[in-house]
Design a protein around this nucleic acid. Structure first.
Length: 694
DNA sequence: CTAGGGTTAG
C-alpha cells in the first residue's frame, strides 16, 4: 500500500473509473482503492465504491469502517460495524480503539470489550485488544483494572511484545505506580525497544525524577529519536528546569536531530517561564516560517509567552490571528488578563467563547481567586457543575478551595473536601496544599494539621510545608511552626522566601524578637534566601509590636533596598505604638510620597494623630484625603448562621441582637491570650465536632 | 503470499 501513496491520487481516480467500467475489478484492488480514497478524506466516494462491490469481504467491511473512524464519525462507523455480516477480531479492535481514542466514549469501549469476552460471542481478545484496553485504563487512571489486564496478559503470554511493554509502562506511570512501571521496564533490559524506553523516560519525568530520566535517556544513546529528545526537553520544562530544557534543545539541534512542533511547544514554554522574550520571538518566527502556526499547542504557548513577558497587546494580536481557535489559547490569554488584575477583560473573553474546556474555566476561576473575588468563583463553579453539567477536576477544585480560604467559608470547604473523597481524586501535593491552606485560613488548624499528616513524608514539598508553617504561625503555634521547619530541613526540602515570611510572622505575632532576628540572619547566611520587601516589613513590624522603636529605626537604616510603602507602613505602626511624634511625621511624608492614592494610608495617619490628640493634624490629613478622593474600605468580619451571613464592622451597632453579641464579646475578651496548650485544647474541641471527615 | 487493528513526547 505504501508506495501507492507517492503517486498522484488522480491516477487512481482514473483507475476507479476503469474498475467501474468493468476492468481490473478484483476485490483486492477495490479494497485498496477504498483505502486510498479515505487517505485523501474522500469518505463519500469511498462509500460509493464500497456499495458497488458485489460481494464485499471482511477486508472491505473493515476498510470502510476504518474510513468513518478516521473521519471521526463513530456513530456511522458503529452502524456499519453492527450491520456487517463478516466481522473478525480486526473489526472489533478497530471499533474498540476508536472508542478509546475519542472523548466520552469510555462506556462504549467497556461495553464492547465485555461483548468480546462474552460466552455467546466467539470473537475473544488478542494482544491488540489488550494493549488498547491498557490505553483506556491509563486514560481513566484506573490502575486496578490495568493491573488485572496485566495479569491476564501474563497468563496468556501477551506481556512481552514491544507494544505490550510500552503500554504497560505508560499505564502504570499514568496511574501513579511508578515502581511497577520500573519493574516492567527492567524486566526487558537487554532487549529494549525505542518506544518502551521513551515511555520510561516520560514516566520518570512525570515523577520529577529527572536524574533517572537522564540516565535512561543516555543508556542507549543509539536508540534515541526525536521523541526521546522531546520527552526529556518537555520533562525539564514541566518540572521548572527551563535552562536545562533549552540547553538540551541546543544539543539536539547540534546533533542534527532536528525538531518538530512538540519540541517548539516545549521550548516556547521554557521561554515563557524564563521570560526570555528574545529567544521566544525567534521561535515564534521559526514557527511562522515552517508553517507550525495551525498547531493548537504552539499557538497557546505563543500567546502565553507574550502574556508572561507583559506584552498583552502582542498576545491579543496573536490570538486574533489564530484561524481555528482552541480553548487552550483562550485560557492563556485569560490568565494573562488575570495576572494584570483585568478581570473584566478576562470575563469578556470567556463570555465570547463558543468552546470552553475545563482549562478555560480554571483559568477564569483562578483569576478571580487572585483578585480576591471569591463570590465570582463560587458563581462560576456553580455554573460549571450545574448549568454546564461538567465534572470538576483537581485544578478547578484547587481554585474553589482558594476562594473558600479567602472568604473563610469552612462549610463549603468541607463540602469540597467530601467531594474530593467521594470522587477518589488522585490527591497530589497541590490539592493537599490547597486543602491544608483552606482549613488553616478557615480557622481549623487542627484539620489543617491532620490533612498535612495524610501526605506521605516523601511527597511533602516546599509549598506544602510553607502552607502548614504559615498556618501554625497565624494561629499562634510558633513551636509547631518551628518544629515543622526543622522537619523540612531534615528531609532536605529547601526553604524559600515564603517559608521565612511564615517563620518571621510567627515571631512577630508572638513577640519573639530574638528568634526572629536569628531567622532573619540565618535565612541569608545558611539558606541563601535574599530578603524581600515583606521580610523587612515583617521585621519592622515585629520590633514595633514588641515596643522596640530604637531597634526598628536601626533596622530601617540598614535596609539595602528601596524602602516601599509596606515597610513605611510597618514603621509608622511602630512609631504609633511608641507614640513618637517626630518619627510619625517623617514616616508620613515618605508614605504619602509613595502612595498618594491609597486611602488606607491617610486613615492610618489620621488615626496616628488622633491617638496623640493632635486634632489639627488629623483634620489636615482627612482633608488631604478628600482632596485626592481616596477611599478606605472598612474592614469587616462575618459569620454564617443558619444559611445567613451576618456582617460586622468596627463599632457597628446595627445588628438586631447587638446587646447579646457585645456581652458575649466581653466574655470572650477575658479568654484571650491563651497559652499555646490552651489554644490547642480549644481548637481540639472544635475539631471533634466534624471529626468524621478524616 | 499479498490488504485491515495496538505503543512513546504537549
Amino acid at each position: 500500500m505504501r508506495p501507492l501513496r507517492l503517486i498522484d491520487p488522480l491516477v487512481y481516480l482514473d483507475h476507479a473509473k476503469a474498475i467501474k467500467s468493468g476492468f481490473a475489478s478484483s476485490i483486492f484492488t477495490c479494497n485498496q482503492l477504498i483505502h486510498l480514497y479515505c487517505n485523501h478524506g474522500l469518505v463519500k466516494d469511498a462509500h460509493k465504491l464500497f456499495d458497488e462491490i458485489p460481494h464485499p469481504n471482511v477486508f472491505s467491511w473493515n476498510v470502510i469502517i476504518m474510513a468513518y473512524i478516521k473521519a471521526r464519525d463513530l456513530t456511522k462507523a458503529r452502524a456499519l460495524f453492527d450491520s456487517a455480516p463478516h466481522k473478525d477480531l480486526v473489526s472489533y479492535n478497530s471499533m474498540l480503539s476508536a472508542y478509546v481514542g475519542a472523548d466520552e466514549y469510555e462506556t462504549d469501549a467497556l461495553d464492547l470489550f465485555t461483548t468480546m469476552q462474552s460466552a455467546r460471542d466467539t470473537i475473544g481478545v488478542d494482544e491488540f485488544t489488550l494493549t488498547t484496553m491498557l490505553n483506556l485504563t491509563a486514560k481513566l487512571r484506573m490502575g486496578c483494572y490495568g493491573e488485572q489486564i496485566h495479569s491476564y496478559m501474563m497468563k496468556t503470554a501477551n506481556d512481552s511484545c514491544k507494544f505490550a511493554v510500552s503500554s504497560l509502562i505508560d499505564m502504570y506511570s499514568k496511574c501513579g505506580s511508578f515502581h511497577e512501571a520500573c519493574n516492567v521496564f527492567s524486566g526487558c533490559i537487554g532487549t529494549v525497544d525505542l518506544v518502551s524506553k521513551n515511555a520510561m523516560v516520560a514516566a520518570c519525568c512525570r515523577e520529577r525524577k529527572m536524574d533517572i530520566a537522564l540516565s535512561v535517556f543516555w543508556k542507549y544513546p543509539e536508540l534515541n529519536d526525536i521523541v526521546s529528545w522531546n520527552t526529556l526537553i518537555a520533562g525539564y520544562a514541566q518540572n521548572g528546569f527551563m535552562e536545562k530544557s533549552l540547553a538540551l534543545f541546543s544539543e539536539m539541534i547540534e546533533n542534527g536531530i532536528g525538531c518538530n512542533e512538540h519540541t517548539l511547544a516545549s521550548v516556547l514554554s521554557a521561554c515563557s517561564g524564563l521570560k526570555w522574550l528574545k529567544l521566544g520571538k525567534c521561535v515564534h518566527a521559526w514557527v511562522l516560517k515552517n508553517g507550525y502556526n495551525s498547531n493548537q499547542f504552539i499557538n497557546s504557548a505563543i500567546v502565553d509567552l507574550y502574556c508572561k513577558c507583559g506584552k498583552n497587546r502582542c498576545a491579543e494580536s496573536v490570538y486574533e490571528g489564530i484561524r481555528i481557535k482552541s480553548p487552550f489559547a483562550a485560557a492563556s490569554l485569560i490568565s494573562g488578563y488575570s495576572s494584570q488584575g483585568n478581570m473584566a477583560e478576562a470575563q469578556r473573553l470567556f463570555d465570547s467563547l463558543t468552546e470552553r474546556n475545563s482549562v478555560v474555566w480554571t483559568a477564569l476561576c483562578s483569576g478571580y481567586v487572585k483578585s480576591q473575588q471569591s463570590k465570582a468563583v463560587f458563581k462560576l463553579f456553580r455554573e460549571f457543575t450545574t448549568t454546564e453539567g461538567l465534572v470538576p477536576d483537581a485544578m478547578i477544585i484547587i481554585s474553589v478551595l482558594g476562594a473558600c480560604a479567602i472568604q473563610a467559608t469552612l462549610r463549603l470547604g468541607k463540602q469540597i473536601h467530601a467531594y474530593i473523597l467521594r470522587m477518589i481524586f488522585n490527591m497530589d501535593e497541590k490539592l493537599l496544599s490547597a486543602l491544608v491552606d483552606m482549613y488553616s485560613k478557615c480557622g481549623h488548624i487542627i484539620y489543617a494539621g491532620k490533612t498535612f499528616q495524610l501526605v506521605p513524608d516523601s511527597d511533602r514539598d516546599a509549598i506544602l510545608y510553607n502552607v502548614m508553617i504559615a498556618g501554625y504561625a497565624h494561629h499562634g503555634f510558633e513551636g509547631e511552626a518551628i518544629q515543622l521547619f526543622q522537619e523540612m530541613l531534615k528531609k532536605s526540602v529547601k526553604p524559600d522566601a515564603v517559608t521565612f515570611v511564615a517563620l518571621l510572622s510567627a515571631c512577630r505575632h508572638r513577640g519573639l524578637v530574638e528568634l526572629g532576628e536569628q531567622f532573619f540572619i540565618s535565612m541569608q547566611e545558611h539558606y541563601n534566601v535574599v530578603p524581600e520587601i515583606y521580610h523587612y516589613a515583617c521585621m519592622v513590624d515585629m520590633y514595633g509590636k514588641a515596643n522596640k522603636l530604637e531597634k526598628a529605626v536601626e533596622f530601617m537604616r540598614k535596609i539595602p533596598i528601596q524602602i516601599d510603602a509596606t515597610i513605611w507602613g510597618a514603621f509608622l505602626n511602630a512609631c504609633q505604638v511608641s507614640s513618637n511624634t517626630e518619627l510619625v511625621k517623617q514616616a508620613e511624608e515618605e508614605l504619602l510620597k509613595l502612595q498618594a492614592d491609597n486611602g488606607s494610608r491617610y486613615v492610618q495617619l489620621a488615626n496616628a494623630y488622633a491617638t496623640e490628640g493632635k486634632w489639627d493634624d488629623m483634620v489636615r490629613i482627612r482633608k488631604k484625603m478628600r482632596g485626592k478622593e481616596a477611599k478606605k474600605l472598612a474592614g469587616c468580619s462575618w459569620i454564617y448562621v443558619d444559611n445567613d451571613t451576618h456582617v460586622f464592622t468596627s463599632g457597628d451597632a446595627s445588628h438586631s441582637k447587638v446587646d447579646a453579641i457585645y456581652s458575649t464579646l466581653v466574655c470572650l475578651n477575658g479568654k484571650l491570650y491563651l497559652s499555646s496548650t490552651e489554644l490547642k485544647q480549644l481548637y481540639d474541641i472544635q475539631g471533634d465536632v466534624v471529626e468524621g471527615i478524616f
